[in-house]
Design a protein around this nucleic acid. Structure first.
Lengths: 122, 122
DNA sequence: TAACTGTGCTATAACACCTAGTACACACAA
DNA sequence: TTGTGTGTACTAGGTGTTATAGCACAGTTA
């Protein structure tokens, strides 16, 4: 369900956060649906609960999830995601596009990459 | 010329590396032209020379610059930039696009962001 | 009640990052 | 040659983040 690479330079909690976010934006977990619990994820990934908790906190701050003490964490609606996240993604998008143009990648290829649906880019 | 934010979570050497890369891809520094020296950058940004050196090493490894002992560091040709960098950027591009689509941003807006030329996204 | 849930806290170890200081070899111009 | 500027290399230490272990509490649900 979620892959964590201990050799990766990125912190584990970021990998978990990104993995959970990916489950949401790909529709594997729909809005309102329950996310795996801190303890279950901790056990299945062999990662300390505190680290999973940190990933959950980050995801909740982005607006992708909300937590209810005693019940669990759930996927939020796309409209609940903060505007800051949108702006950051748009910045990232044009920055990548600008650099790719500098590297000589034709614009059609960029647009194709933007339109592409199914892929396994982390 | 280059801005460094000490409060930013990103390491200083990454900020310097990205700043230098930006000078190259925006054409401020053209291919073959000399980059500011380690010591000059170190003095003007009030950053330790070792940190600047680390940024230079990273930039050189990406293929955006090459160094000549005794003479200085210079901007490389776009064709010298490694294929790994291209792949990473394309991944980043489609990942951002996919998430933005999930957030309800219309495709025309994404394509517009990709086409956009002049902007100050870091 | 029992088992699950999120949440909070302390303490510790490991690692990346950044700094300070020093030194060497090379290129270039006076 | 001498002086200056250049990239490069090394040691050492301080600092903050990350991840871990362990424990505890309160709320929810069957």
């Amino acid at each position: 369900m979620i892959e964590v690479d201990f050799r990766d330079a990125r912190p584990i909690y970021e990998q978990v956060r990104d993995g959970l976010r990916r489950l949401i934006i790909t529709g594997v977990i729909e809005a309102g649906e329950k996310l795996p619990s801190v303890r279950v994820l901790s056990a299945s990934l062999a990662i300390n609960p505190n680290t999973i908790q940190k990933a959950m906190d980050a995801l909740e701050q982005e607006g992708y999830a909300y937590s209810v003490p005693g019940r669990g964490s759930f996927a939020a609606l796309p409209t609940d995601v903060g505007e800051g996240r949108r702006r950051e993604l748009l910045k990232r998008l044009s920055a990548a596009a600008q650099e790719l143009r500098f590297l000589g990648v034709p614009e059609e290829e960029l647009i194709e990459a933007v339109r592409k649906r199914e892929e396994d880019d982390r």
